[in-house]
């Protein structure tokens, strides 16, 4: 038996000939009618008991963890509270932010130049850029930082002048390149190798047709790059770049080996003095988490800016979502209160 129920129905009660003379399609022919008015039917939503079980288990585990954080005396929250906003810690946080900022600026500025070199048609620049990336990705950051810290051993003075010729200005390296400057240079040069590859990847991800269209329209070269290619490349660059900035921010803790008073070095000094290791590590942890959260929020909005045109409708921001939710709930509340009044 291969015929469909509808067909059988048609055979049993031949449909009256359609006015147009053509056969009426089966779907519009007479079918069994419902015994009730469809409007009177109510929909019962499917229930998901296991979701409730899963949520309950999750909440219990979370409660246990929070309970441990509060009740375990080992966390020593009073000490944490004393140091979290201590001036010496705030200074260290500020220095950490500065190291991150300068390292990022130096790293990405140099990274753009290196990426441009690798993508250029000039074989000399290509080779130099490739070699830079190869070298700085090969040297561990801490080794490189120690080189910069000991730069005065290699070069006592730095001169500005004609290459291989006379010099005009001379600096004494030991007084010019402080510990912090050495740290920034080290972090920045290390960062540049990685950012160059991230920027290059972003630029390569832009469809070749875009450059072709820009060229066909006679748009000037510089404008092709900044107006057409870069905004599209940014979508690919941003998540990775944000990763790099965050990892650089936490990576500044490595500078503590050079006795620079950034956040991690400072808490080590304090717990070296008072022996309260765990609460002071928590001080550093909370500051790192806080700053990373700020960076993540900035990342979200910058990415949203560059998503223009890439998606058909923009997703809502978390703030918009909350507002919509509140509006929805208050509308529901109003509705139920009027219904209650009607009864």
């Amino acid at each position: 038996m291969t015929t469909t129920p509808v067909r059988r129905h048609d055979q049993a009660n031949p449909a009256p000939a359609h006015p147009s003379g053509r056969d009426v399609p089966p779907s519009t022919g007479p079918v069994a009618t419902l015994d009730v008015d469809p409007a009177s039917l109510t929909v019962i939503k499917a229930r998901h008991p296991w979701r409730w079980v899963g949520a309950a288990i999750g909440l219990i585990l979370l409660a246990q963890f929070v309970n441990g954080l509060i009740t375990n005396p080992g966390w020593d929250w009073p000490t944490f509270a004393r140091y979290i906003t201590a001036p010496v810690v705030l200074q260290a946080v500020w220095l950490t932010i500065q190291l991150t900022l300068y390292g990022t600026v130096l790293g990405f500025a140099l990274g753009i130049a290196i990426a441009a070199g690798r993508l250029s048609k000039n074989p000399v620049l290509q080779t130099i850029s490739w070699t830079y990336v190869w070298a700085f990705r090969s040297i561990p950051l801490i080794v490189q930082l120690l080189f910069w810290f000991n730069i005065a051993y290699l070069y006592q003075s730095v001169s500005i002048g004609v290459p291989f010729g006379p010099s005009f200005v001379t600096f004494d390296v030991n007084s010019t390149i402080s510990g912090i400057a050495a740290a920034v240079i080290g972090l920045g040069l290390h960062q540049a190798a990685y950012s160059a590859e991230i920027i290059r990847a972003g630029i390569l991800s832009v469809d070749a047709g875009q450059l072709e269209a820009a060229a066909a329209l006679g748009i000037p070269r510089r404008r092709q790059f900044f107006k057409i290619v870069l905004p599209q490349a940014m979508r690919g660059i941003l998540p990775n770049a944000a990763n790099e900035v965050i990892s650089l921010f936490k990576g500044t803790s490595i500078v503590s080996t050079m006795a620079i008073a950034e956040l991690f070095y400072q808490v080590q000094v304090i717990y070296g003095r008072n022996g309260r290791v765990v609460p002071l590590l928590m001080v550093a942890t909370v500051w790192y988490i806080l700053m990373t959260t700020v960076l993540s929020i900035v990342q979200y909005y910058v990415e949203r800016h560059y998503a223009k045109g890439a998606v058909r409708t923009m997703p809502l921001t978390p703030l918009q979502k909350v507002r919509r939710r509140v509006a929805l709930l208050s509308a529901q509340a109003r509705q139920s209160s009027t219904m209650g009044a009607g009864r």
């Binding site: 047709g209 269209a213 560059y306």
Partner: peptide, 10 residues
């Protein structure tokens, strides 16, 4: 162009 090549971000 066959594939239009409009600038998607504009």
């Amino acid at each position: 162009f066959q594939n239009f090549n409009l600038f998607p971000h504009l």
